[in-house]
């Protein structure tokens, strides 16, 4: 059944395109992967994150564990899941501040994840012009559900991961995609405008996104 549908649809397509010469190739007037000229990439990234009403702060690598602990305290998150590959110092700082730290090995069930207050991850790349953080779910980022189900997401972005705009960012993630790894783009916290087009932050994804931009070398 299905294979004859395949043949028939492809046949219809070929018939429909009988007017198109085989060698026809529409030129694409576009140069891929170009940077966008921005005065200051990191400033633009900060503007955009704040514009999405997400929290943003800059710090050095050495400050990360303390900043993460402070952020979780601010959001009253008493538990957090930390993906494999995240700097151990972060877990230690959270434990010291009384947060119940969970690992995802063995994988947490959906219900356990739902009962977890926060998640801390790194990212793969970020695009300044759109304030977009991309996760390729490699080390330090965890599987997709980790950065989705808990209500608070603290995301650590290194300055050298921030590029000007989407074309550069896509170029940096195609490798992961060609390796068939899932990729998730996050631009602010979850939101809806479905009721009278009034923007409401926080529907199903984490209602709080907290971005830590790590500007100087060091642990992070």
């Amino acid at each position: 059944m299905s294979s004859s549908a395949r043949e028939e649809i492809l046949g219809r397509v070929r018939l429909a395109l009988a007017d198109v010469p085989p060698a026809d190739e529409t030129p694409i007037p576009w140069t891929y992967g170009q940077p966008r000229a921005l005065d200051d990439v990191l400033d633009r990234f900060e503007d955009r994150i704040i514009d999405y009403r997400a929290a943003f702060e800059r710090c050095s690598g050495a400050e990360v564990p303390a900043r993460v602990a402070a952020a979780l305290a601010r959001y009253c998150a008493r538990s957090a899941v930390l993906p494999d590959g995240l700097d151990d110092a972060i877990g230690a700082a959270l434990v010291a501040s009384g947060v119940a730290v969970r690992s995802d090995r063995p994988p947490l069930t959906r219900t356990e994840l739902d009962a977890t207050g926060a998640v801390v991850t790194t990212c793969a790349v970020a695009a300044a012009e759109t304030g977009t953080i991309m996760l390729d779910h490699g080390p330090g980022q965890g599987r997709r559900a980790l950065s989705l189900v808990p209500d608070v997401h603290v995301c650590i972005v290194r300055a050298d991961q921030v590029v000007s705009d989407i074309p550069e960012a896509v170029a940096r993630t195609v490798r992961a995609l060609r390796e068939r790894r899932p990729v998730t783009w996050i631009s602010g916290g979850s939101a809806t405008s479905d009721i009278e087009l009034t923007r409401v932050e926080g529907v199903h994804g984490p209602r709080t996104l907290h971005v830590l931009l790590v500007e100087t070398e060091g642990r992070g």
Partner: peptide
Amino acid sequence: RMNPYTSLWTGPSSGDG
């Protein structure tokens, strides 16, 4: 400038989804 979430996936991926 960008919608909050965009998901890209390429078949099933082991241990995720």
